[in-house]
Nucleic acid binder design. Structure first.
Lengths: 81, 81
DNA sequence: ATGTGACTTTAAGTCCGTA
DNA sequence: ATACGGACTTAAAGTCACA
């Protein structure tokens, strides 16, 4: 049996990593949203995997946190820290 | 001077890598679109960086090509091949 | 086999509030 | 500081005909 990846797998990885990195850097959702030029409520939803975030906004969020975008897409990100 | 990343940097990296991997695997836009469950014209636009593609669709495209999504976001992807 | 413009439908993204 | 909801506007998703 081929393991087929779930529909929102990438979305959930990004959501989880985003929150993890943000907390590690001790920045609030508000501050992150401001830095990225996005709304606070939106960032909240992205972190919970409720929004199908676009690549442009992913780039803004990665930049705002000072990390590479590819890192936020890495399911193993925790270990690389 | 701090080098500030351009607005659509991530989008263009993804576009370029997507096309590169697709051609390397010798699959047409049509076949890729079919495999990913997307329209052919849409894939064409994504590869040219004209569409602000969502993370869900990025996941579908990465899966269809049999690569990790994080690889398609790596600006240095060429060298890792 | 791919690029492009025009188009409609859907969901992204914002802003207000509450707890 | 964050989750969540409603109402709203903008942009992405998705399709088509033709170059």
């Amino acid at each position: 049996m081929e393991k087929v990846s779930k529909p929102h797998a990438a979305r959930m990885v990004f959501a989880k990593n985003l929150r993890q990195v943000r907390r590690l850097k001790e920045v609030s959702q508000e501050a992150l949203a401001l830095q990225a030029g996005l709304s606070r409520t939106y960032v909240s939803e992205v972190e919970r995997g409720e929004r199908n975030v676009s690549i442009d906004n992913m780039g803004l969020l990665a930049d705002a946190l000072g990390v590479k975008l590819k890192e936020l897409l890495d399911p193993e990100m925790l270990k690389t820290l």
